[in-house]
Amino acid sequence: MIRLRAWQAHATLMIVLAMAIVYFQAYVLGRLGSPWLQVDLATVFVVYVSIEHLLLGALVRIFIVAALMHMFSGAPDGFYLMFYLLALVIANVLAKFFALHKLSSQFLIFAGIFCLKFVLVYGSLSKFQRVADFGSFFREVAPSVLVTTLCSVPLFAFFSAIDGLFDASSRRDHRQELAEN
């Protein structure tokens, strides 16, 4: 019987959760035709770990999600790593200005990062594609951005509840520890 410490169990669970999220997104959500069902769970997870987990742990989880997403996607090489690294930096910067316990703040952070994803994709298109179909691109991504931003708030609470099962693992606890000392 393997006995894991709290942080080891937390790290393992987070990796399993990251994999489950990517598989769910590829096998279930990726096969659904409607853009209103295209919830980008992986990005919500990445933003959550970027804000709430310690930097090193967050980086490891982000690399795993990026690698798995790359394995499933037709995106150009390095796209996910670039996007998630930028998301990590921007989420951390925004978290310094917004109070995270407020729903409106969470909503704004997520909305900002989802918009960043579409700006990055739009930037990777050829000039002809950009000229030709900004309208269709916008029509395609708008429902996904909206529905993911709406779902991000309860998902944030869900991930937070999972973190709450383990002690001294999240950045919030770490900050509290530092403040107490």
């Binding site: 096998y27 959500l29 990726g30 295209q38 499933f72 579409f118 991504v141 996904s144």
Partner: peptide, 15 residues
Amino acid sequence: QVQSGDPSFLYKSIR
């Protein structure tokens, strides 16, 4: 048989 779609929802591929 198609197993999965593209999880990015922007790029388009199937497995």
